[in-house]
């Protein structure tokens, strides 16, 4: 279905006004950043907000400061700009790569790093609307994917009601570095770890994150880490550009002499939310990164995987992706 229902539109210039507008805009009012998720889903009839509050004219949201101890990245900064930030490129290659390997240059020019965090799944049954049952789109209707074409669906964090993959890359890389998200709502500001932003589907797959509808993401902060430099975001997909991950791994290492002191592994394309692989990380501590330890870490990362009908390959693919990413990161630790 291709539709365009009428909606009202406001473009405030301050954060305070944006929060006020979302509160008075009535139920279903949505923030709008680059629109590459929101407008897309509105045209498909999956999102039907009565009003949108455009964040594009709020200068404060676009502030990026990567010169200090921690990285500060405004939610309204564009993906294409952040991907080319020299500090990210040099000191946090996993972050830069997660952005530059996402979508296309055209999309990255429109899309913001804040909107990116809240992008929605690419599950075709979710996007296509009728006639497909989808608990995420229409709670209680069932899940067409579970007995259907689940080739791109998740193997980690799945539930009986939903197996949709969290499709984004950026949040995966942020998760590896324990990033924080500053949000503001009618009650003021609060900070939450990006690890607490997304939810597993459980039996409420329609609730994807922990923000209230009237909470605005102001900025993302990445605290100092010794795993930034020797990091990578390895993304495996169906074509060599412009596709979502079938499996991806954000990996960061701190290596002392030969042995790993600190390891960060987060997975994309295989789980219902950005997925931290802590047991795999721990398996590497005090060990050298070799083809064997890397492969073992990869296997550990997928120990709890639950394959469906056509996505079982993601377990092996994901494990190898983790292993390869570890080897790339280890190489970067000796440069």
């Amino acid at each position: 279905m291709l539709t365009t229902r009428p909606f009202t539109y406001a473009a405030p210039t301050t954060i305070a006004d944006a929060v006020a507008l979302i509160d008075t805009g009535g139920p279903g009012t949505k923030f709008l950043a680059g629109g590459t998720t929101l407008y897309d889903l509105m045209k498909l009839g999956v999102e039907t907000p009565a009003a949108v509050v455009d964040l594009g004219r709020i200068p404060e949201l676009a502030i990026v400061d990567t010169t200090g101890d921690q990285l500060v990245i405004g939610a309204g900064a564009r993906m294409c700009d952040v991907a080319e930030d020299p500090v990210l490129l040099h000191d946090y290659p996993a972050l830069a790569e997660s952005l530059s390997l996402a979508a296309s240059q055209q999309l990255r020019t429109m899309a913001t790093v804040g909107g990116n965090l809240l992008q929605r799944t690419r599950c075709a049954y979710f996007r296509a609307g009728a006639p497909f049952a989808c608990n995420k789109r229409d709670p209680g209707s069932g899940c067409a994917a579970r007995e259907g074409i689940d080739r791109v669906h998740a193997v980690l964090g799945v539930s009986d009601s939903c197996i949709a993959t969290y499709a984004g890359d950026w949040a995966v890389a942020l998760l590896a570095f324990d990033a924080l998200v500053d949000v503001v709502g009618p009650g003021g500001e609060r900070t939450l770890p990006v690890a607490d932003l997304h939810r597993e589907p459980g039996d409420t797959p329609q609730i994807e994150h922990t923000l209230a509808p009237n909470e605005l993401i102001v900025r993302i902060r990445v605290p100092p880490t010794d795993t930034g430099r020797a990091s990578t975001y390895l993304k495996i997909r169906d074509r060599e550009s412009y596709a979502f991950a079938l499996a991806s791994a954000a990996v960061g290492l701190a290596v002392d002499g030969d042995v790993v002191r600190n390891a960060r592994i987060a997975l994309g394309g295989v789980a219902t939310r950005p997925w931290r692989a802590r047991a795999a990380e721990e398996s590497l501590i005090d060990a050298p990164v070799t083809a064997d330890t890397a492969r073992r870490a990869g296997r550990i990362a997928f120990a709890d995987a639950r394959p469906g009908r056509h996505n079982g390959y993601k377990i092996e693919l994901g494990a190898r992706t983790v292993a390869n990413a570890l080897l790339i990161a280890a190489q970067r630790s000796v440069r």
Partner: peptide
């Protein structure tokens, strides 16, 4: 179960991109 074609758009029907 449903008929028709599922990946009915250019994001999901994968044609080669320049990098391919």
């Amino acid at each position: 179960r449903y008929g028709g074609f599922l990946n009915a758009d250019l994001a999901e029907y994968l044609i080669p991109v320049n990098a391919d």
